[in-house]
Simulated assay, not measured.
Amino acid sequence: MADNKETSTAPPAKRGRGRPRKDSEFASLSKELLGQKALEIAGSEGYGALTMHRLASEFGVTPRALYNYVADREEVINLAMQQFLAISPNVEFDCAHWKDSVRDAYSATRSAYRAFPRASQLSMDEKIHVMPGPRRTELMERVLKFYVEIGLTLKQAVGMVRALERDVLGFVLHVDYFYDRRVPGAPDFFSHPVPKEWLDFYPEVPAPYAQQALGLPEQTSDELFDEVIELRILAVERLLQINGEN
């Protein structure tokens, strides 16, 4: 009898519906992990693809298991946004070399957006209330302070901050998104104002400059992005000139 007691095992403890077992590999789930995975899904496929069922399937658990960590889908989206802002650049601005700082801010922001190109489309995909945490306020304040300290008015600084977001997000969605997924040998639809295929398809449309532009060398997405940055630097230079004249 004593030997039987030593070798016998107790029956497994019962657990609540949908809860991951304590001894399972899913016991390591956390809000941080859910936020990371949610960002991966939304950043690549859009927020419409971010459902509780999809998120649960990524971890191999039931949707009910997720509610041990989050209250609802809205909290999941908030977590995704917080994760996205956490990787946003914290550029060290140098007013003495402001052009380099502008370039750094644009390049770092592009890298973050490019990693999760559809993460910033929340306002287009969702109508829920999102509280992304203090990170965005901190980032915006640093950029505004930089532009004001190099000589822009606050209104002009606000305009440049808006331009930074529009320029980078628009470029990532319109150019990088397709460049990064471009099949080798596919037509280049971005280096020239009008692709050759379109000009050939509508020969009745007079477009001498667009035709001549086809002779210009093709550009990589990095070269196209450099153009965006340099145009913004020229805009800042002009604003500083105007401010100095007044």
Results as ranks from 00 to 15, higher is better:
M1E: 11
M1Q: 09
S8R: 13
S8M: 10
K14G: 11
R19Y: 04
R19V: 15
S24V: 03
E25S: 08
F26R: 13
F26K: 14
K31N: 10
L34M: 05
L34N: 07
E45A: 14
Y47S: 06
G48I: 02
A56V: 06
R64S: 12
L66I: 12
Y69L: 14
Y69N: 07
E74D: 15
E75D: 01
N78I: 01
A80S: 13
Q83R: 15
S88G: 10
S88M: 15
S88L: 11
N90T: 05
V91E: 10
E92D: 14
C95T: 15
S101L: 07
A105C: 10
A105Y: 06
S107C: 09
R110H: 15
R110C: 05
R110M: 13
R114I: 01
R114Q: 14
F116D: 08
A119W: 07
Q121D: 14
P134Q: 08
T137N: 13
T137M: 13
M140H: 12
E141R: 14
V143S: 11
V148N: 12
L152P: 09
V161G: 02
R162D: 14
L164F: 05
R166K: 12
V168S: 09
V168H: 09
G170T: 12
G170L: 02
H174S: 15
H174C: 10
H174K: 11
D176Y: 02
Y177S: 02
V183K: 14
P184L: 03
P184Q: 06
F189H: 13
F189W: 12
F189S: 07
H192M: 03
P193Y: 05
V194S: 05
D200K: 06
F201Q: 12
Y202N: 11
P203I: 00
E204M: 12
V205H: 03
P208R: 01
Y209R: 09
A210I: 00
P217H: 01
P217W: 01
Q219D: 00
F225M: 01
F225P: 01
E227M: 12
V228M: 03
Q241C: 04
